[in-house]
């Protein structure tokens, strides 16, 4: 990790790291620049989601340290940082997916449209219908393409008739840019699709329940460059309708799709700024080290 490349401005080759383990903090002494709070502009006016003083623990171990961040309406915010920096963990606090991990504990204030999502009267199940999620590895259910997309609408009773359900399925597949490829095979298993198609199927499945926010956890890290490009175009189209937070290991991806970029380091939020600013004139030494490929 200390391979010292000649520092050059611009974008180093991004890398795809498949990281399945729960995020952990790591010590990197060479770059142990002290992080005194977040630099840049973490807050926006009228945010869709917001986190204040977010702390997340896995058992005794703290994975997120005092993160405060706003996610604006209809924007794509990218979260970057080295493996184990807590960006995935932070993403999962936003729809309470961390609740499914027994040893995980969340502190701080997390709001969706100003409502505390961790309030006792909040139902995490309904929250997850409003804040959808797309995972790192495409995970279509072992059902037909149709049933995959219809899964959420059926759960939440979004369609009263078969025709309505058909319409939702078609609309979701169209929005996910998959409809033309699968319109004749709707009753074939979703697991039979290629990796990129499976991931778009998962996106269609997520938007079928008509969420307000879509969280994407490294949505293209298991895909080839062409499938990645398709998904990135799709994200750009989706942002007119949804708010998107995407965790990515690829800095080019962050640069291409997002309006704001948040850089995480060892469980702390180091810098949040408009994307072009982060990649051209990073404010923090750690951000600069990361985007110039000194580590990561």
């Amino acid at each position: 990790m200390t391979d010292v490349l000649p520092t050059m401005p611009g974008l180093p080759t991004g890398e795809t790291v498949v990281d399945d383990t729960p995020p952990m903090t790591e010590t990197r002494e060479e770059f142990d620049v002290e992080i005194k709070g977040t630099v840049g502009a973490p807050f926006v006016d009228d945010p869709k989601m917001s986190a204040r003083h977010s702390n997340v623990f896995y058992g005794e171990k703290q994975a997120i340290f005092d993160v405060s961040l706003d996610i604006g309406r209809n924007e794509i915010i990218a979260m970057i940082g080295p493996s184990g920096c807590g960006k995935s963990t932070f993403l999962r606090t936003l729809n309470r997916m961390n609740d499914t991990i027994p040893i995980c504990r969340v502190e701080g204030e997390h709001c969706l449209d100003g409502e505390d999502i961790y309030a006792p009267d909040q139902d995490p199940v309904l929250l997850r219908a409003r804040v959808g999620m797309v995972f790192q590895k495409p995970n279509p259910f072992p059902k037909s393409i149709y049933d995959n997309v219809a899964y959420g609408p059926r759960l939440h009773g979004l369609a009263r008739t078969r025709a309505e359900l058909d319409e939702i399925v078609e609309k979701s597949l169209v929005r996910a840019g998959l409809f033309n490829e699968v319109k004749d095979d709707l009753h074939k298993p979703g697991t039979g699709l290629s990796g990129g198609q499976q991931q778009r199927l998962c996106i269609a499945r997520a938007i079928a329940v008509d969420p307000e926010v879509i969280l994407m956890d490294e949505p293209t890290s298991a895909l080839d460059p062409i499938a990645t490009a398709t998904i990135e175009e799709l994200m750009d189209e989706l942002k007119s309708r949804y708010t998107i937070a995407v965790v990515t290991h690829s800095m080019q991806q962050a640069a291409r799709v997002s309006q704001r970029t948040a850089y995480f380091h060892m469980g702390k939020l180091v810098e949040v700024n408009p994307t072009n600013q982060v990649f051209t004139t990073p404010q923090h030494q750690l951000t600069e080290n990361y985007i110039t490929g000194r580590f990561g």
Binding site: T100, V125, G152, L155, V209
Partner: peptide, 9 residues
């Protein structure tokens, strides 16, 4: 499981 829970099941 995550996929299903993430859809609000």
């Amino acid at each position: 499981r995550d996929g299903s829970l993430g859809l609000g099941a």
